[in-house]
């Protein structure tokens, strides 16, 4: 088969999509190798779902091209559909059917022979711990149970390419970490995964490669570490004793808007290009100015810092506004 040993399973080249006068996706390119997780990171409306929907044949590709397993999405969608599993925002399950019936439904539509189908469904139910609710209609599931079934439904055909569109949005921390384990185990079995998310932590933990996407454009690309490294500066995180000292510190250091302060948490994050020396200077300035520091650390930037630096807005802020 074309996907084996011959490079990337999923490729996208200069993908473009326009809705009316809005350019939802402007110029998105990436490759995903077997066993690799590609994270599409960005706020709502960034173009993540549109990108995934184009590669999974749900939306027409306006410009550029995409392949799965070496097959062109535009000219051979029927073949591509045999190679993909889709879960998340747009691909739901039938709510009136039980988990077992849903898996049976999708297994039949994938044309998996009956015995093989039965065997796989039982195995999936056991592996992903669906047993407790496998025979109840999906409409009665909790958010976590529903998402788990969504993802498992994408795996019935054991596809080499899996697309997970914000699989953990709205999940509690425990269900989220269970899904993370699922994603890791898929990747370790050689599945190529495209995962979209609004959560920096999720991209950081799961993705081998991250595309930071904003308003349809890739604004940064690289491994989580490389993205953080590209900022070429550490962050000095200072905790002060008095809340009023947060503003005092701001004045003392003459800090620009790039600095994030949190009055409630009595915390100041200062990007420090100079590393340790510069940090000592800053801390000394604060001390001389009469600010009492309760704690400080020099740390690597988080993806939140990266996103802030790249787009001028925080992912978490955008998320609160839009959801």
């Amino acid at each position: 088969m074309a996907t084996r040993g011959s490079g990337p399973v999923i490729t996208a080249q200069n993908l473009r999509k326009t809705f009316g006068s809005v350019q939802a996706v402007k110029d998105v390119s990436f490759d995903v190798e077997p066993g690799q997780v590609l994270g599409l990171l960005g706020p709502n409306g960034a173009g993540k779902t549109t990108t995934i929907n184009m590669i999974t044949t749900l939306l027409q590709i306006d410009g550029g091209e995409a392949t799965v397993g070496g097959f062109d999405v535009r000219t051979q969608p029927e073949v591509v559909r045999q190679l993909i599993g889709l879960a998340g925002q747009s691909a739901a399950v039938d709510e009136k059917l039980t988990a077992r019936e849903n898996l049976e439904l999708f297994g039949r539509l994938y044309k998996i022979p009956r015995n093989e189908r039965r065997r796989r469904i039982e195995k999936l139910i056991e592996r992903f711990d669906l047993g407790a609710f496998a025979d109840r209609p999906a409409s009665s599931y909790s958010g976590g149970e529903r998402r788990r079934l969504d993802v498992v439904a994408a795996l019935v055909a054991e596809p080499p390419a899996v697309f997970l569109d914000e699989p953990t949005t709205g999940l509690d921390p425990r269900s989220r970490s269970e899904l993370w384990n699922t994603v890791r185990s898929l990747a370790s079995n050689g599945v190529a995964i495209v995962l979209s998310t609004q959560y920096l932590e999720e991209a950081d933990r799961l993705a081998d490669e991250i595309l930071v996407i904003d308003r349809g454009e890739i604004v940064a690309q690289g491994t989580p570490d490389a993205l953080k490294h590209d900022l070429e500066r550490d962050v000095l995180e200072v905790h002060v004793v008095d809340r009023t000292d947060v503003d005092t510190a701001r004045e003392l250091l003459g800090l620009d808007a790039n600095v994030t302060t949190d009055v409630e948490a009595r915390r100041i994050d200062i990007p420090v290009p100079g590393g340790a020396d510069r940090s000592l200077d800053l801390l000394r300035q604060l001390q001389d100015g009469g600010v009492s520091i309760s704690n400080f650390q020099l740390r690597q930037p988080t993806l939140d810092d990266v996103f802030l630096a790249l787009t001028g807005s925080s992912v978490t802020e955008t998320e609160e506004v839009t959801t």
Binding site: T57, Q82, L86, A91, A92, E95, F106, K111
Partner: peptide, 13 residues
């Protein structure tokens, strides 16, 4: 509305 049609459309059927 439920989104199950989108799943169908991503299947080889």
């Amino acid at each position: 509305n439920e989104g199950v049609n989108d799943r169908f459309r991503s299947l080889p059927m």
